[in-house]
Amino acid sequence: MNEQDTTRPDRPVSVEMWSDLGCPWCHIGKHRLERAIAARPDAERFVIRLRSFELNPDASRTPETIETAFRRSHGGDAETVLRAEKHIQALALREGLSFSVDRRNANTGDVHRVTHHAEEAGRGREFFSLVQDRFFAGDIDPFDPEVLVQIAVEVGLSRERVREVLAGDEYAEAVRADRREGRELGAQGVPFVVVDGRLAASGAQSVDAYARMLDQAVPTVSAGVA
């Protein structure tokens, strides 16, 4: 990309975020990123796209407790799991986000597949965000296909078409391709954010850290150059 393109104040800037539904840091990080963008006078030029990154593609489709899933992956006892959950809950509440420690965990592939379908209609971020927000609030079971169908309908998708997607394996390769691309770019986990295809950040950064990253991507705007 040449310098003229980089400094154009009206040039759209891509913001890609690799995440997984069950990742609490993705939930917090996404909202922090959105806040950093919304605070800018040129917020409309930043185009956010959520990318798929299944942390455990082999996870069971049968929902289980967070404790069971955590102890299988990280070890520890019930007290350790609850302490970690309470810590993240406190952070989320300070961000103004609902956070239930009684959520369940299961394979997130279907959520990602429907997100890819929704993205084709320009509704991918809206769909995933609704599912994620309600999941962490403890309001829905996102591993129930009919719950995904209902939320898809809420964002304007066809009920019948989404059921068709869920009944097969459409978009499964797109989900895997997203994960491969993320790893190729350096993602070891999520959230993983890439701004303008050239600046990357791992983990849930603070609002200020994301703001600095956006400024670095488009310094002419942050410097007040029109």
Score class of each variant (00 low, 15 high):
residue 85 E to D: 04
residue 21 L to I: 10
residue 47 V to L: 12
residue 40 R to V: 03
residue 8 R to N: 15
residue 29 G to V: 07
residue 33 L to R: 03
residue 18 W to R: 05
residue 68 T to V: 14
residue 62 T to F: 01
residue 94 R to Q: 09
residue 60 S to I: 06
residue 60 S to N: 07
residue 73 S to H: 10
residue 37 I to M: 03
residue 73 S to E: 11
residue 56 N to R: 00
residue 11 R to Q: 15
residue 43 A to Y: 07
residue 65 T to G: 14
residue 12 P to S: 11
residue 33 L to W: 03
residue 13 V to M: 12
residue 5 D to I: 05
residue 51 R to D: 04
residue 20 D to V: 06
residue 86 K to L: 15
residue 44 E to G: 12
residue 66 I to A: 06
residue 69 A to W: 00
residue 28 I to V: 15
residue 56 N to H: 05
residue 14 S to Y: 01
residue 24 P to V: 08
residue 24 P to E: 12
residue 76 G to E: 12
residue 92 A to H: 03
residue 6 T to S: 11
residue 94 R to F: 01
residue 43 A to N: 12
residue 94 R to P: 02
residue 31 H to Y: 08
residue 24 P to A: 13
residue 87 H to P: 03
residue 70 F to S: 10
residue 31 H to W: 08
residue 49 R to G: 10
residue 33 L to V: 00
residue 52 S to G: 06
residue 7 T to M: 13
residue 76 G to V: 13
residue 45 R to M: 05
residue 13 V to I: 15
residue 60 S to D: 15
residue 8 R to A: 11
residue 59 A to H: 08
residue 89 Q to A: 14
residue 84 A to P: 00
residue 9 P to W: 12
residue 6 T to D: 11
residue 33 L to N: 06
residue 30 K to S: 08
residue 25 W to L: 13
residue 82 L to I: 07
residue 22 G to I: 15
residue 94 R to I: 01
residue 20 D to S: 04
residue 92 A to V: 02
residue 23 C to G: 07
residue 79 E to C: 00
residue 85 E to R: 06
residue 29 G to F: 06
residue 91 L to W: 04
residue 80 T to P: 01
residue 85 E to V: 02
residue 33 L to C: 04
residue 87 H to C: 01
residue 63 P to K: 06
residue 85 E to I: 00
residue 84 A to F: 05
residue 66 I to H: 04
residue 83 R to K: 14
residue 11 R to S: 05
residue 24 P to L: 07
residue 53 F to K: 02
residue 64 E to S: 12
residue 67 E to Y: 03
residue 21 L to K: 05
residue 41 P to M: 05
residue 73 S to L: 14
residue 66 I to Q: 12
residue 74 H to Q: 10
residue 72 R to W: 11
residue 7 T to S: 12
residue 78 A to F: 01
residue 10 D to A: 13
residue 85 E to G: 01
residue 37 I to W: 02
residue 44 E to Y: 03
residue 91 L to N: 09
residue 73 S to C: 03
residue 92 A to L: 02
residue 82 L to C: 01
residue 54 E to R: 04
residue 73 S to M: 14
residue 12 P to W: 12
residue 18 W to Y: 08
residue 91 L to S: 07
residue 59 A to Y: 07
residue 62 T to L: 09
residue 26 C to S: 15
residue 65 T to H: 08
residue 42 D to T: 05
residue 17 M to Y: 05
residue 51 R to E: 12
residue 7 T to L: 12
residue 32 R to Y: 05
residue 18 W to N: 04
residue 40 R to L: 14
residue 65 T to K: 06
residue 68 T to H: 11
residue 41 P to K: 02
residue 45 R to L: 02
residue 88 I to C: 06
residue 27 H to G: 02
residue 93 L to E: 15
residue 90 A to L: 09
residue 7 T to W: 07
residue 9 P to Y: 13
residue 63 P to S: 04
residue 82 L to P: 02
residue 4 Q to G: 09
residue 52 S to L: 06
residue 83 R to T: 07
residue 25 W to A: 10
residue 87 H to T: 08
residue 80 T to F: 13
residue 90 A to G: 08
residue 93 L to C: 10
residue 75 G to I: 08
residue 48 I to E: 04
residue 81 V to F: 02
residue 35 R to I: 02
residue 94 R to W: 00
